[in-house]
Each structure stands twice: as structure tokens, then as C-alpha cells.
């Protein structure tokens, strides 16, 4: 282990589930408002995982009131309380940008039984 890895090692999370693009996940985000802290959930399909090491991010897409919403998170960020995998999707691509152009039934991803 080199010195830079020693610095980074204590910031890695150990409880991150194994999830891939196409999977549906529930991201529990810590939100602090004037000394109070609450948990907000963002649920949707993972459309990409990008970067590596401490800088690795993933993007979740959901449809909210007919409007597509995407949010990118740092996997090891302390603002994420937990990540739950809801189901496993069957996709043939690593980056699911094509979902942005699909609406209605076509915007679904096949789910592994």
C-alpha cells in the first residue's frame, strides 16, 4: 500500500452493495436542516457508474410526475446513509443513456426473475 492509498483507505465504505447499470436502487440521503437530520430516499434505475477509487460516482434516473430526474452521487460520500438494491435489470450496455429518449412502456428495463 503506498502512502496515498493509506490516506484514502479510511474514507472507503464497506457496506456498499454490488449493483450495476440497469439495477433499481434506493438511495437514502442524509439531509441536515439546522441541527436536525432526516433521511430522504431517491429511487430509480442506475444508468451509469463512472470513475474509480474514492472518486467513483453513479447516476440514478427516475421519472417524477412525467419528468425525468437524474442525480449523481459519489459512492463513498458520507451524505449517503445507505444504498439498497431493489432488483436486478437485464441490460446490454454499460451506459444507459438511451433511456433518456424513451417514454412510457419503452423506458422500462427487463428485470431478472
Amino acid at each position: 500500500m503506498n502512502n496515498l492509498e493509506k490516506v484514502e483507505s479510511k474514507y472507503y465504505k464497506t457496506d456498499v452493495p454490488d449493483f450495476k447499470p440497469g439495477d433499481k436502487v434506493k438511495v437514502n440521503i442524509r439531509i441536515s436542516e439546522e441541527n436536525k437530520e432526516r433521511i430522504q430516499t431517491f429511487m430509480g434505475i442506475v444508468i451509469k457508474r463512472q470513475g474509480g477509487g474514492l472518486n467513483e460516482t453513479f447516476t440514478v434516473r427516475k421519472i417524477s410526475f412525467n419528468i425525468g430526474v437524474e442525480r449523481t452521487f459519489l459512492i463513498n460520500s458520507p451524505i449517503i446513509n445507505s444504498i439498497e438494491k431493489v432488483n436486478t435489470g437485464i441490460v446490454r450496455r454499460a451506459k444507459l443513456y438511451y433511456l433518456r429518449d424513451k417514454i412510457g412502456k419503452k423506458s422500462r428495463v427487463k428485470i431478472e426473475e
Binding site: Y11, R30, L54, P78
Partner: peptide, 17 residues
């Protein structure tokens, strides 16, 4: 000098160090 990386503070902000 060892090198640069980014870490998190307790509030979740990313710091370049």
C-alpha cells in the same frame, strides 16, 4: 510531496488535499 487526492469532511463536502 506524495500526491493529491480528494477526501470527505464530516459534513460530506469533498476536499482536495
Amino acid at each position: 510531496k506524495v500526491g493529491s487526492t480528494q477526501i470527505y469532511d464530516e459534513r460530506g463536502n469533498v476536499l482536495c488535499v
